[in-house]
Amino acid sequence: MRFLLASLLAITIALGLGGWSAKLAIDGGTNFDSVALGPWRASPLIGTREADPYAKARLAKLAQLTLGGGEGIMFQAEADGEGRRLLLECTYRLTGRTPAARFFTLSAHSDDGRVDLPQSGRPGWLTSNALLRREDNSFEITVGPQARAGNWLATDRTGPYRLTFALYDTPASAITGAAGLEMPAIEREGCSDDG
């Protein structure tokens, strides 16, 4: 009887710790094939058969569609250029360029993966075909709750979020390293509770 109770306790502890560690790996967003370009992160293998099982489980949990290896690549940022967590109540300025792509989208996502759709008919995403650019093909995008002239991505509510830059039909989808690629810088301008 003592052996049976000890065996049941060991199995319960093993299953509990195993489930907890798997949940931590899935919720934590650890990608083993991740590429970093400043605050931006991408997983080139995430839409392929070679993606790690935790990435596949995370995508299934969030019900997100991925881009295949030849279709494009998604970069995500959860922090600004100084490493501070992105917050919906703050205003950010994205400046620079992206890797060559036929088309791209920029959107804000809450931590559960849903697109943060602002109220009052404000834009919930930006697309490259509607983006105002400078003569050198660089651009500036304001992301925040207050309307701005030019390229503006509206956010609403409060709390942490992530920006997703999806590049379609791009040579960057086959990257094995970050050498030579450029993504926009993210600079915090201020927050609504700064006074």
Rank of each mutant, 00 (worst) to 15 (best):
S43P: 01
N151R: 04
Y54P: 01
L167Q: 03
M1H: 15
S34P: 05
L65V: 05
P39T: 00
A10I: 06
S21G: 06
L126V: 03
L132K: 14
E89Y: 06
Q119N: 11
T155W: 08
M1R: 14
A22C: 10
P145R: 10
A57E: 12
G68D: 14
G70Y: 09
R93C: 00
E189C: 00
I11Y: 10
R133Y: 04
I73Q: 01
G83V: 13
A77H: 06
F32W: 13
A6V: 10
D112C: 08
A63W: 10
R188N: 02
T66Y: 09
A179Y: 02
H109R: 14
A79S: 14
P184L: 01
I186M: 03
L132W: 07
A101H: 05
T95P: 00
P44H: 01
F165E: 06
Y168D: 00
A179K: 15
L5H: 09
G150F: 04
P44A: 10
E189S: 04
I73M: 04
R134T: 09
P44F: 05
V143C: 03
A14D: 03
L131V: 02
P184Y: 04
A6G: 08
P118H: 08
L4D: 00
S138I: 02
A179D: 15
R102K: 10
C90E: 11
A14L: 10
L24S: 13
G195R: 13
A42V: 12
I186T: 05
M1S: 14
I141E: 09
A147F: 03
E82Q: 15
D169S: 14
R2M: 13
L37R: 00
A179F: 08
P160D: 14
G124K: 01
G83E: 12
S192T: 15
S128I: 01
F165I: 06
L65Q: 15
A101E: 04
W40L: 02
G195T: 07
L67C: 07
V35F: 00
W152L: 10
I141Q: 06
F3Y: 15
Y54L: 01
